[in-house]
Design a protein around this nucleic acid. Structure first.
Length: 625
RNA sequence: GCACCGGUAGCUCAACUGGAUAGAGCAUCGGAUUUCUAAUCCGACGGUUGUGGGUUCAAUUCCCGCCCGGUGCGCCA
């Protein structure tokens, strides 16, 4: 059937053409926020430039031309706007039917038809378990992949695990020195947590050595003081301040001078040289971590088409740079380092190969990006990575453009802000990092309590199953309803308070609607044939129809802006409209059988729309709360 | 110093990329329940959109200055 929005848009375009003799092309309609402004609005200000007439006059002529056309029962000019009111029955019918026919399709759009997109996300390190920030990353990546697929793109999702480098050597070293051959199995610990604890142990032991070194090396401070005794303006500084600064920077700058640091560096050298016992230990500890990651991903409902490992990918890119050097894209400095000048892109010069010829971080990223584009035949790539790395990605993209890849203009860094707690910032040094698994357990426990309070008949197994779903919905919705770029505060208590704009609110609304339908004794199909939109004339029913019509607009915007929050917002709108309706209007108890039937069908449509929208956010419905 | 991100109701967040009276949720206060599942609904209260200019018929949105917070600016990752 013809989409009613396209129909009205077409009528408006025709009206403009007929009245002013100019075709202004497809017209965008706005949904009226205020019921007093009708259902849809044509903004005459936007037409004013093309038609060179004052907006109020335009609006008046358009209103006259549109009134009575098709389903438009009233067209009223107010200032520079034309407010359209649609025939109630047509409005309701055209909003509900598509959802009943195919709810998933009602929210589908074709913004990215024919495109092939690659979404890279998660990217954990193997030295510790995932934390709250990874949850935001995982949910964003997974959801954006769903939203792009919903917009018609072929989407593949990949993960690049950082399994090499000094950080994993720290865990390995502490384990080697203090582990006594324990394994996750012997101590009954999840593998990634187990390895993470050895990382913490390293930091602790290392800090003891640092403290000792600082205590016994006053001479080291004195030499630092010599070179830092004056401030920027050349004024003498207070010694205590300099000492504080020295302590703060000491650890990083003297890593290799401290025994544990030196040992970790040596271990990295051995790993790179392929030393068999080092590699064996590395493999064993990584396998523990991967086991832990697997179980977390499974629990979160996150999956990947492929997982890459930096240990296999870190050498990529070097040859591309050398090729580019011959072509003159890169240049060799006097000291031997290879660099590229990005000043025409508003960036500086960027080194891409060290003077000793070895790779750096961006070299690897150039290599993996090219490899991924080829492997997946992707004409666009997205990275879900924290916003601290904006500059890195700006460099990466600018370099790839200069290298001339046809897809280089189609790369996007989906930068997201930090997630903080109400108590303040998460800091690994202060042990205030929230572990992802622990957090989920906490939310599940709270959900279980709620269920138990309301349902004393449920078995433990049943409660556990329901609590898991509700907790996941709560967590996912909380993290996705905020724009990615926003530095957000996650309040665990609020997320388990099941009222307001929450996942459980959606689940509850859905359960209410489906349960009513089930209790009515109607078969799944057949009801729709008796659906009579003309009977649904209550304001709360019209309101629902208007929200349903905005489904596609929400998914389009989500795909265009990589903003799951657009879908989340729409879900809250439809749930609110549904609950208001439920409160104000008898449905199962409606006296007239035909009316009862039509309302039940509406309830079904609402439930399916909520399920479809939630599915885009990776949120599964539950049978009962 | 330079660049980027942000500053909107007491709190957490929106505002369809320049459009109508800046909207939700939480919190607070007042109402609705012999229920169709009240994990709900209705109402009230709450704003000089950090600040000062500018552009525009129209600015939370664009431009410039300033203030505050955050993050970057490596031959680290």
């Amino acid at each position: 059937m013809t989409d009613i929005l396209e129909l009205i848009s077409g009528l408006t375009r025709q009206a403009v053409q007929k009245t002013f003799g100019t075709d202004v092309g497809p017209l965008a309609l706005e949904f009226a926020e205020n019921a007093a402004h009708g259902d849809l609005t044509v903004n005459a200000f936007h037409l004013a430039k093309a038609l060179r007439k004052p907006p109020p006059a335009l609006a008046a002529s358009l209103a006259a031309a549109l009134s009575g056309q098709g389903p438009i029962t009233k067209a009223e000019a107010v200032g520079g706007y034309v407010n359209l009111t649609l025939d109630r029955a047509t409005l309701v019918d055209s909003a509900v039917r598509p959802v009943l026919d195919d709810a998933a399709n009602a929210g589908r759009n074709n913004l990215l038809n024919g495109r092939s997109m690659l979404v890279e996300f998660s990217a954990p390190n193997t030295n510790k378990p995932q934390h709250l920030g990874h949850l935001r990353n995982n949910f964003l990546g997974d959801t954006v992949a769903r939203i792009l697929a919903n917009a018609g793109a072929k989407v593949n999702r990949v993960n690049l695990i950082n399994d090499r480098g000094i950080h994993i050597c720290k865990s390995m070293l502490a384990y080697q020195q203090f582990g006594n051959g324990e394994t996750p199995k012997t101590v009954g610990r999840k593998g990634d947590h187990f390895v993470g604890e050895w990382y913490v142990r390293f930091e602790k032991e290392f800090q003891l050595e640092v403290d000792a070194y600082i205590e016994s090396n006053e001479a080291a401070f004195q030499s630092y003081f010599e070179t830092h005794r004056l401030d920027r303006k050349g004024q003498p500084r207070v010694e205590a301040d300099v000492r504080k600064e020295w302590r703060a920077t000491f650890k990083e700058e003297n890593f290799g001078k401290i025994p544990m640091g030196a040992a970790a560096q040596e271990m990295l050298r051995q790993w790179e040289a392929g030393d068999s016992s080092t590699v064996a230990l590395w493999k064993e500890m990584n396998s523990w971590v991967f086991e832990g990651f697997d179980s977390t991903y499974r629990r979160l409902g996150i999956s990947f088409d492929k997982i890459y490992y930096e240990s296999e990918a870190y050498k990529l890119g070097r040859n591309l740079i050398l090729d580019g050097l011959e072509k003159g894209i890169f240049s060799r400095r006097a000291d031997g380092a290879v660099e590229i000048d990005l000043s025409d892109k508003g960036l500086g010069k960027k080194v891409v190969l060290r003077s000793d010829g070895t790779s750096i971080y961006i070299t690897q990223d150039i290599g993996t990006t090219v490899a991924k584009a080829e492997e997946w035949k992707a004409d666009g790539q997205i990275w879900v990575v924290a916003d601290e790395q904006r500059h890195h990605f700006a460099n990466l993209f600018a370099i790839l453009v200069k290298m001339g890849y046809p897809w280089a203009g189609n790369l996007h860094h989906l930068a997201y802000g930090m997630v903080n707690l109400p108590e303040g910032r998460m800091k690994s040094r202060e042990g205030t990092v929230v572990d992802a698994d622990d957090l989920l357990d906490e939310v599940v426990a709270l959900a279980s309590e709620e269920i138990r309070r309301r349902d004393d008949q449920a078995t433990d197994a049943d409660i556990a199953r329901r609590a898991e779903s509700i907790a996941l919905a709560a967590l996912r919705f909380m993290l996705l309803k905020v724009l990615p770029s926003t530095t957000m505060i996650y309040n665990p208590k609020e997320s388990i308070a099941f009222d307001g704009e929450t996942g459980p609110y959606l689940l509850y609304t859905h359960a209410r609607m489906t349960r009513m339908f089930a209790e009515s004794g109607q078969s799944e199909h057949g009801g729709a044939t008796k659906f009579d939109a003309g009977l649904l004339v209550e304001p709360s029913e019209i309101a629902i129809a208007r929200v349903l019509l905005q489904f596609r607009q929400a998914t389009e915007r989500a795909a265009r802006d990589y903003a799951p929050s657009a879908v989340a917002k729409w879900l809250v709108d439809i749930a609110q409209a549904a609950n208001t309706w439920y409160q104000e209007v008898p449905i199962l108890k409606a006296a007239d059988p035909a009316l009862r039937e039509s309302r039940l069908v509406l309830a079904k449509a609402i439930a399916e729309a909520i399920a479809a929208g939630s599915a885009l956010l990776g949120i599964q419905m539950v049978g009962r709360m």
